[in-house]
Design a protein around this nucleic acid. Structure first.
Length: 296
DNA sequence: CCAGCATCTCTAG
DNA sequence: CTAGAGATGCTGG
């Protein structure tokens, strides 16, 4: 990525959730190391040294972040575990028909109501749309949040110093929209999305899906996947009635503009492998591990 | 029309 | 076990 551009936005709120946000940088490096050297099961000591922490310090930091110890996390992102997520998910595929709502075992999930933009609105590539945006600290690094008066329209992640590229990536999806930096408008969304204590069924998060017909169907299928479960690209293809379109599903999942909320990280290859992630495979692992901590 | 994909399956070694 | 090829459906230009 072209990270040559310097800091573009003012630095924001060192208060509030900055502890969590600052944690992610170390957590990310630990996860990178774990996934690189997972074959020889790196010890807590080795991991701690790599990020300049004491073993107990890392233990506490990591557990605070994930709800899991580094060792449990390592367990949680292996192929075996991913396969289990897929297996557990299967029965629910047919059972729950409601969109993004309810069902047993979803007590800790983020509840969402969504609407799709009409194909016409999508084709105009954001023409006439006012999008307010702002950056916020999240458990997975800096998050760029984009909202319209109809709800959350975009959410992406980036590492420090890459704000400019992140904005270009997002705004390029709706090039004809009008963009207004407005942290006051986006902050409440960020605060709710990343704080499980505020995930409430009676106050669902409003999301507006801007995409083609096919993409919206795929994203709706993602919204039905419960926290702590996963689906394969091919099972999603079957679910939307296009059993041979698994590859097209992959493309549509990858085009999802509302990361995390539309849980594209819960889509895996049939082998259980984490095949790809627009915002980096490390982040996909991080989110799945973090969710494993919440699902427990 | 064509190239590019976050797929999958099958075959051959 | 891996590597490669072919079938595949949607998207943007």
């Amino acid at each position: 990525m072209n990270a040559q551009t310097a800091i573009l936005t003012k630095d924001i709120t060192p208060l509030a959730t900055s502890a969590e946000g600052g944690d992610y940088d170390k957590v990310r490096r630990v996860i990178e190391k774990i996934s690189l050297d997972y074959r020889d099961q790196p010890s807590l000591e080795t991991l701690a040294e790599a990020v300049g922490e004491t073993p107990t310090g890392l233990q506490k930091l990591f557990t605070r972040w994930a709800g899991l110890s580094p060792k449990a996390f390592l367990q949680a992102v292996t192929l075996d575990h991913a396969r289990r997520l897929l297996a557990e998910g299967m029965p629910l595929l047919e059972a729950s028909l409601e969109v993004g709502m309810s069902g047993p075992g979803r007590l800790h999930d983020l509840f969402v109501t969504h609407e799709a933009m009409s194909p016409g609105e999508h084709k105009s590539r954001g023409e006439g749309l006012v999008i307010r945006y702002g950056w916020h600290i999240s458990p997975f690094g800096r998050a760029l949040v984009m909202v319209t008066d109809r709800g959350l329209a975009g959410l992406s992640f980036n590492d420090p110093g890459e704000d400019r590229a992140a904005f270009a990536d997002m705004s390029g999806r709706w090039p004809n929209a009008t963009y207004v930096e407005d942290m006051a408008a986006t902050a409440p969304y960020a605060a709710r999305i990343f704080d499980p204590a505020r995930w409430r069924r009676d106050e669902p998060l409003r999301v507006v899906l801007i995409g083609t017909d096919f993409q919206v169907r795929v994203w709706e299928a993602l919204l039905k996947i419960p926290l702590g479960c996963a689906r394969t690209y091919s099972s999603i293809a079957e679910e939307i009635g296009k059993p041979s379109a698994s590859r097209a599903v992959g493309a549509a999942v990858g085009a999802n503009p509302v990361s995390f909320v539309v849980p594209c990280h819960r889509a895996l290859g049939k082998s259980g492998a984490l095949t790809g992630y627009h915002w980096g495979l490390t982040r996909k692992r991080a989110i799945l591990g973090w969710e494993a901590g919440k699902a427990a």
